[in-house]
Design a protein around this nucleic acid. Structure first.
Lengths: 340, 340
DNA sequence: TTTAGCACTCCGGACGAGAGAGTGCTAACC
DNA sequence: GGTTAGCACTCTCTCGTCCGGAGTGCTAAA
């Protein structure tokens, strides 16, 4: 389905006007503000047609028009101009990726904060999945008289640490256990590593049963931690939007997002879309966020991948959102491949 | 200043009724619901007196009374019953402290989440300060061909890691640098460690100038990270409170909290108060949170200490908040001393 | 096909009335 | 003298009503 040139221009004007103001837009405003060379009456007719074909909605009988999901969809697919980031914004992003990385978790958390800040919507990152990740190295270090520190480094730079209680173990013993672990588990994928570690350690140093158990338990918890993959920014930005003056709506959205699983299922459901992908309103197929849009993309991290995206109102600045997501995608892919 | 017995009982009734309902409370309700043995007219007289002496306020001429800051203060100091947590709640807290601790940062983050959840207000933790902390151990581990992993363990169990870029270094070289670091920096306090490391590494292995610089830079960032000490829960709970139906108020509070520094200065200003301490409304001396109350306490972590607390409306359930804070204080102190 | 004109619709703010809740005061009561 | 019943008064909140404004849809003319 396509639209003739003038209808497309009217639709574009309506969408952009509505994105800017948040209010229903009338024919007069379009005629005045957007130089289409025709009168408001003509625009009115075009708008009526656009409503009939489902590109525009009317909140009530005699008010201006608002883009429908379909209208937005046509807009982002066909009409939307490509946008870039300002020099200053790019610089802010660059600088995040130049700072010393302490660990991947806080790095991703910082990323989310920056996405939220530059977009003025709600940023999120869905971290690289664990299953395809392998270990680059494993160490057991003495930490105190009765504790050892287990350090794991994955091939994409994740560092996980964990304190292990142990009654007595010499430095040498730790060292040897450490080496056994390293030799045998390096390169093994996450979903196999716990089992491997278990059989391995048990036969080699059975007198440390308690330690072995703790190591295995920790490895299990690392691999299972699918819920931990989602990082969401602070929803304060959404409070500034007129569509969320209604507290209950905001509450619904926030709790939907915080309820682990919603975004995950949304993202994994993603089909052969463009990248960055755009999901508009009801396209998300979840009641609670049916007037929320989502722009997200995929970044690669070693053999696996993660998602980064922005949640905002349907009248979000899609062009800008796409620019931001693209930028971060690229940077994140770069970041995670750098470590190879 | 004290109150005669009946006035105190009226005040207590008003405060508790208001805490429960959030509405101005009238004399009739008090007379009916709280068995004071006098009629509403008498209560009315008492309430008028309480208003004169500043314990109660009236939103407008002919409405019920609302406790003033002074009224709340008297309530928490003199009238409030001691509360405990339900068995189930205690169990939830216990279980957090029994789970395997991955690292202190995520542990504190989880703590904040749990405080928010059990209190139904906004929990926060102000982590142990860095200056008095010393290192228990320091390690440099091979991570990949061109990177090493720097691992620090502090005496209170904080683990900080950081990837260091280095063009070429054999395992043995890393090992020896690692040992030099360990030997010389263990037990040194955070605020001295960067300098020590610098002079040390430079003279011993000058050919790794780049590495040294990175290590020092990281040590600096660890010691400086005062802004990172604050962990705040999700403000969703606040959305459920009728006093925050007004989005702008909520926005003010949230951004005041997110603006680093507000809570810090509030907490550091704390004088010789009881523990858990209670700050009611304007006692906080910050405009933005002048109708927010705060209940917080101190937990010890080795030679240093941190704060844990709850932010809520002035009509918060102080008894419960105190119980929760006490519980967490104790648990956290236990947690951080366990590692000695 | 476009446009001007006009009647019509609907929203939102203003206004006022009435109900409800609560107070303060007065006068009677124990 | 403290306590209480009664009552007038005040203020808020909720409706219903009433415009004014904005926008539409339709018709007829250009």
């Amino acid at each position: 389905m396509t639209l003739d040139d003038r209808k497309a221009r009217v639709l574009r004007a309506v969408v952009e006007e509505h994105i800017e103001t948040g209010l229903p837009v009338g024919s007069r405003v379009i005629a005045k503000r957007y130089r289409l060379g025709v009168s408001s009456a003509t625009i009115r007719n075009e708008m009526a047609d656009l409503e009939d074909t489902g590109y525009l909605d009317k909140p009530h009988t005699s008010s201006g028009r608002v883009p429908s999901d379909r209208g937005y969809r046509f807009y982002v697919d066909e009409l939307m101009p490509k946008k870039g980031l300002t020099a200053e914004e790019s610089r802010a992003v660059e600088s995040l990726f130049r700072t010393r990385i302490r660990d991947v978790v806080s790095f991703l958390r910082e990323t989310v904060r920056l996405v939220s800040e530059t977009s003025n919507y709600l940023g999120f990152v869905f971290g690289p999945e664990g299953e395809a990740v392998t270990f680059r190295s494993i160490h057991l270090l003495p930490a105190s008289s009765d504790k050892a520190l287990l350090v794991l480094v994955t091939d994409i730079g994740f560092v996980e640490t964990c304190l292990i209680e142990m009654s007595d173990a010499s430095k040498d013993e730790l060292q040897s256990m450490s080496e056994i672990l390293s030799r045998n588990l390096t390169g093994v994928t996450m979903d196999q590593v716990a089992d491997r570690a278990y059989s391995l350690l048990r036969e080699e140093t059975s007198r440390y049963a308690m330690v072995v158990e703790q190591v295995v338990e920790f490895l299990r918890s690392v691999t299972m931690s699918d819920g931990d993959r989602l990082y969401v920014g602070s929803p304060v930005n959404l409070l500034n939007l007129p569509e969320f003056r209604d507290v209950d709506r905001l509450k619904g959205v926030i709790s939907a997002i915080e309820t682990n699983g919603i975004i995950q299922t949304l993202l994994t459901k993603s089909t052969d879309e463009a990248d960055p992908a755009i999901r508009i309103g009801a396209e998300n197929e979840v009641e609670a966020i049916k007037d929320i849009s989502m722009v997200y993309g995929t970044f690669s991290a070693g053999r696996t991948e993660g998602k980064i995206g922005i949640l905002g109102p349907k009248r979000m600045d899609y062009g800008r959102a796409v620019a931001i997501v693209s930028m971060f995608e690229e940077k994140l892919s770069g970041f995670f491949s750098r470590g190879d």
